[in-house]
Design a protein around this nucleic acid. Sequence first.
DNA 1: CGGATTGTTCTTCC
DNA 2: CGGAAGAACAATCC
Length: 293
Amino acid sequence: MPELPEVETIRRDLVRKVANKKIVHVDVRQAKAVAGMKTKFVHLLTGNRIRAIERRGKLMLWRLALPRQGIDTALVHLKMTGQLIYEKKRDGIVEVVAGGHRLTERDFDLPNSHTQVILTFGDMGKLFFNDLRRFGYMKPATAAQAEAALDKFGPEPLGKDFTWQYFQEIFFGKKTSVKALLLNQELIAGLGNIYVDEACFCAGVRPERRVGLLTPTERRKLFLCIPRILKNAIKHRGTTFKDYLDSEGKRGNYSDFLMVFDRDGQSCRRCGTVIKKTRAAGRGTHFCPTCQR
DNA sequence: CGGATTGTTCTTCC
DNA sequence: CGGAAGAACAATCC
């Protein structure tokens, strides 16, 4: 469930680990993972370099140094269960198993049965794209196709376009719930189920509330809470709820700071009331009945 | 074993 | 016609 903070964490890591390194080998194990364009993908990346990695919402755009037939970008989306894990060159015996206990830091193998794509770089470092549910993709795109994908997103909640004026505008004339509003990528880019629930708790607003019925104070709180929570989550390298791991295969620590998400049945960290879980906008939705109205 | 899972897109409805 | 809600879809786990 990588959302903005998780994708941003991975993006920053990958810039350090693989940007501008020559890609010497591309192994596509599942053509579906590259939008069925296996030949095109292999041809595009082999011998190429990732010049820059951008992020828009939950989508990454890998800008390649050498365009091939007008294709200069790979659109990378992890959807629910995608992982991008980098492993440095293995020197000698790395995975020693003794007495049933692995002596390495990881408790999983690379590659594994969920590995869809493997990129090998000039220094023999490898980037593994794993995806248990296989909904994610790495899709070759022309500059125009990449631009078209970008156009669909609303402002970045951590960018300067995310203004109080804009936030007020998206409430105007809407009859939907706060949950649906905040999940809509065309209005605000990058929020998913975790951070919508957390932002609603932070603002003291129940996710199923109709947007038109929020007080100006509640709207203002929500506006201030969104960037605050996202920044804090990035600081702690995202949230691991189930499958998310960063580029080193490590968990995100923001899980320790969640106030409501996945805490149904547990007591509220602010007031002690039992956290409830319902369904709003078709999604599992968590809230504190006391702190949120 | 079928219901739950989530981001996104498609379909239907009002 | 447009917005909103719900279904569909991807695949797997429990």
